[in-house]
Amino acid sequence: MNNMVLVITGAAGSGKTTLCKYLCEHYHLPKVVTHTTRAPRTGEQNGVDYYFENDASFARKHFLESVHYAGAQYGSSMEGLQAAWQKAPLACIVLDTKGAVEYLKQLGNQVAVLFLTIDVGPNSSEALRKRMEARGDDPVKIKMRVKSAEYARDQQLPSALVGHAVVIKNNELKQAKQQADQFIEQLLAKLQ
């Protein structure tokens, strides 16, 4: 089989970045570095966590998908994906649900999707907000994000991903990792 990309998607605060980091470290998967015009969070490094861009440099990239979200632009380039594939046949990327749908449209069977959610009853949205606060997000930006249409959209698996995505409830990270391990082992077996 050709190269593949594992797309991890779901609501803000659902643990996408944490799970991607775990899978990249545990399975030596290269992370597809994406681009953003937002300011770096504490500890983030250019070219590692994101390529931090300004509006002009962002406009010059060749994107598979891009989105304007919470006052900033985000996108992933074909060049970034190719660079990851030069390191290994299975790469990992974190995208919003719209980006995941776009990847599936453009890359077809080269895409595997994990959709993360949390299920703590009627307070799931509050739990996600607390996770964003705990990771150091700006409280004003959290309020903007929670009120956005994109945030509401990313709460549920899009119909275009039904049948293509594996859903993992990330209430407890250890269990989520175990489910992701099973999925990755199946993908790696396909690539051999």
Rank of each mutant, 00 (worst) to 15 (best):
Q179Y: 03
Y27F: 12
H68E: 15
S66P: 01
A88N: 12
K31A: 07
T9R: 05
A91F: 03
L116R: 03
F52M: 01
P30E: 01
A149N: 13
D55Y: 05
R60V: 10
V67Y: 09
D119E: 06
Q156E: 12
Q156F: 14
L157I: 04
G13W: 05
C20T: 06
S57M: 09
K98P: 06
L64R: 06
H62D: 15
A160V: 06
F115L: 02
L64M: 08
R41L: 15
D119L: 05
E150F: 12
L161N: 09
H68V: 14
F115T: 01
K190S: 15
D96T: 02
K177A: 03
R131D: 08
K105H: 14
I168L: 06
A189S: 10
R153H: 14
D137F: 07
V48A: 02
M78Q: 11
V146L: 15
L90T: 04
P40H: 01
L128Y: 04
D154T: 07
I93S: 07
D49M: 00
L161M: 07
G80I: 01
G163E: 07
A11S: 13
F63K: 00
S57Y: 08
Q86L: 12
I184S: 06
L104W: 09
L6I: 03
F52D: 01
P122A: 00
L90P: 05
K31W: 09
Q45A: 10
K177M: 10
F183Y: 14
C92V: 15
V101Q: 12
Q179N: 03
L19S: 01
K130A: 15
K174F: 11
T34D: 01
G108T: 10
R153M: 12
A39D: 13
E133W: 02
L114H: 04
A12D: 10
E126F: 02
E185I: 13
A56L: 15
A127H: 02
V101K: 12
F183R: 10
Q156C: 11
A152C: 09
A12I: 07
S159M: 13
N123G: 04
D137A: 08
L161G: 06
A100K: 06
A70V: 13
D181M: 01
E126C: 08
P158Q: 09
H28G: 07
A91R: 02
P158I: 08
L114T: 02
K141D: 08
A112I: 04
S148V: 08
M132T: 03
A72L: 04
E185R: 13
M132H: 03
A134N: 13
E44R: 01
K143L: 09
